[in-house]
Design a protein around this nucleic acid. Sequence first.
DNA 1: GTCTATATTCTGATAGAC
DNA 2: GTCTATCAGAATATAGAC
Lengths: 216, 216
Amino acid sequence: MSRTAPRGPYKPGRIRQKSEQRILSAATAAFAQHGFTGASMQSIADAASVPKANVHYYFKNKLGVYTAVLENILGLWDTVLNDLTINDDPAIALCRYIDAKIDFSRTHPEESRVFAKEMLSGAPHLQEFLEADYGQWLDARLTIFRAWIDAGKMDAIDPAHLLFMIWGSTQHYADFAPQVKQSLHAEILQQAHFDAAAKTVKQVILKGCGLAIASP
Amino acid sequence: MSRTAPRGPYKPGRIRQKSEQRILSAATAAFAQHGFTGASMQSIADAASVPKANVHYYFKNKLGVYTAVLENILGLWDTVLNDLTINDDPAIALCRYIDAKIDFSRTHPEESRVFAKEMLSGAPHLQEFLEADYGQWLDARLTIFRAWIDAGKMDAIDPAHLLFMIWGSTQHYADFAPQVKQSLHAEILQQAHFDAAAKTVKQVILKGCGLAIASP
DNA sequence: GTCTATATTCTGATAGAC
DNA sequence: GTCTATCAGAATATAGAC
């Protein structure tokens, strides 16, 4: 009864893709909790249900796994970084952005933590990214903020520091989850907690910028 | 010419105290950059200029060093957590608190990073702290905020989430320093950068809470 | 492509001389 | 109290059978 013939339409690399995805997912969780050195290849392989040697076969070495995880996270970021324009209403644009950031902390907490740990370590593997893609994205946003301010659409607030406030406030719910849980007396953070978080952040940021809440 | 006699008034434990301090300082930097597993006892000993065996002599094992670092950080926190009272003016109290938090990020970035990494790892060594000291401190603050709101001194804003905003915004300058440096085109963060940060955070938070800036 | 067995290096920890 | 020498264990990585 044992059959070695391929079942279903065979696509080369299908197993590979599936295995790589499982390894990537397991590695993200491991790096988030234990850090780069603390996460062992054995634990990653076990969590992904593949032999340890296969992890080396797919990603060459530990650094290969880690950079793959980081690149995957940077890819996810692109989906969050919506493209604002000068013609957008600042209140609506900021609300959308804050909502998206809070939602990212809810749906991808482990990715947020890996990114945060890399930053805390001095971001040695994100230098190119920070100097290239990120620098461009940031400068474009700062220009839009300044245009809004010059047009009198919002208060004169340092755009870079304002962005830091939004990032820090929203990422806090993924990165400092133990403290947040303890503060809210919650075993795990529910949708309602993130809704309350988004509401408060939007409320304070918008009014703090001299903007009216767009829609409740 | 070699002398083995003690020079100066001999105090038992003087060398010990000095060595422990050096080890603690070196360990803080190592844990901040490389995490618990990534920081080796050898590197800590080298940075502290003591033989590796002495680190074990003073702190028993690696976990002993780490918990000593954490306890030292929690001690530093106490100095930042000023005691607000219901009779304080919310604007002045919040300004003081934000200034103190930003100053902590400037003067103790590595301590902030060790604390952040512990949080990102799930805070396994901070459970008692979170449930005891921190819980009490937080509940007292929340009560004060609610009293301010009930007295009409500030807008009705969820106090816990407001505190998260302040923490996230201020700690960001220590924890995400690489990103901040890149954004501000600064090789290292100067006093002026932190002044601008504090100004923006106070500006947005206070106005966002319906408060007038206390003093420029 | 998959997996077992092994080589090599490094780390935490300690024994024991001084 | 201080430090050198060393041990036991674990981790990354690879060789090679299947």
